[in-house]
């Protein structure tokens, strides 16, 4: 079943087209990622789906219901977790959750049971009774996520959920997302971390300047738009010039990437022995050699002509 169907969605801010006729769908129990730099329209798109923002034109359907006309019904199906943690700093985590539970018409017993269950999953039990403004960023994010899934939404919308988290906390967060998916939720999340989109998402829409420029499974996108693999040679620093010259003499196209020299090739496994032989014969043994498969970064670069990291900066 289709959980979310977006058709021709456009959002104008005066003359600026923040969303340009976006269309896509998300299947039930799918983790669907929106990957793109800041300003690409991810947040606008998610806020329109969540009912926080009104579109200029287009339609949004959530489990077959018109999200713009049947807001009350649709809002019960959606859990929305925006970039801000949306918590009251002068209330405790528990008080915040109780308030959110009331917005969704939960009863007290159901609320207590759900908090106990989610505390186990998210590991919030130790700090729920503390004032939110005394908690760390990671703890706040966990409570905010907890508030968004308290009412067991069918579609969970997470806007940049791991921004500001350290890599370990980010990985813990992914575990939670997978678990929620396994329990039946459909997840729409935005990120500008390529590895997050790659590892976490079943499908990814790459957004740039209010448009979807690529859509598919991460591997499929990399295969179609990522280009060829690269062999990266890391020479000793003093011999980088000589190594580069030798590689060029071999008729290879060489690009400098930091301290390394990248060589594009269709068959990296076959190229590496030749490289080692040629360099060794001149006494230019490299420090190390690695093979780099195409990433979503390459996909973004090839689709937009700009590196994602540069645009995010």
């Amino acid at each position: 079943m289709i959980a979310l169907e977006v058709e021709g969605l456009t959002k104008m801010y005066g003359e600026v087209r923040a969303l340009d006729s976006i269309s896509f769908h998300v299947n039930e129990r799918e983790i669907f990622g929106l990957l793109g730099p800041n300003g690409s329209g991810k947040t606008t798109l998610m806020e329109i789906v969540a009912g926080v923002r009104a579109p200029t034109s287009g339609s949004v359907k959530v489990f077959g219901l018109d999200a713009l006309r049947e807001r009350e019904k649709v809002s019960r199906l959606i859990g929305f977790n925006p970039q801000e943690t949306m918590l009251y700093g002068d209330l405790s985590g528990w008080e915040n959750l109780r308030f959110v539970a009331s917005l969704y018409g939960m009863d007290m017993r159901e609320f207590r049971e759900r908090v106990e269950e989610l505390s186990g999953i998210l590991g919030t039990g130790g700090f729920l009774d503390k004032r939110v403004d005394k908690l760390s960023g990671g703890q706040r994010r966990r409570i905010s996520l907890m508030a968004s899934i308290l009412h067991s939404p069918h579609l969970l919308i997470l806007d940049e959920p791991t921004v500001g988290l350290d890599p370990e906390a980010r990985r813990d967060f992914w575990e939670v997302i997978w678990r929620l998916r396994d329990e039946g939720s459909t997840i729409l999340l935005s990120t500008h971390y390529m590895e997050e989109a790659d590892e976490l998402c079943d499908r990814v829409a790459i957004m740039d300047r209010g448009r979807i420029v690529g859509l598919g499974e991460p591997d499929e996108l990399k295969r179609r738009y990522g280009g060829t693999a690269k062999v990266i040679v890391y020479p000793k620093l003093r011999s980088i010039g000589e190594v580069e010259g030798t590689l060029r003499e071999m008729g290879l196209k060489v690009t400098r990437i930091g301290d390394g020299l990248a060589v594009e090739t269709e068959e990296p496994e076959e190229l590496i022995p030749d490289l080692i032989t040629s360099l060794s014969s001149k006494g230019l043994e490299p420090e190390r050699i690695e093979i780099r498969s195409p990433t979503l970064e390459d996909v973004f670069l090839n689709l937009t002509g700009r590196p994602l990291a540069e645009v995010v900066e």
């Binding site: 969540a50 807001r71 925006p82 949306m86 959110v100 917005l103 969704y104 018409g105």
Partner: peptide, 8 residues
Amino acid sequence: KRLIASPA
């Protein structure tokens, strides 16, 4: 945002 995204 949480208030208006809710069914209340």
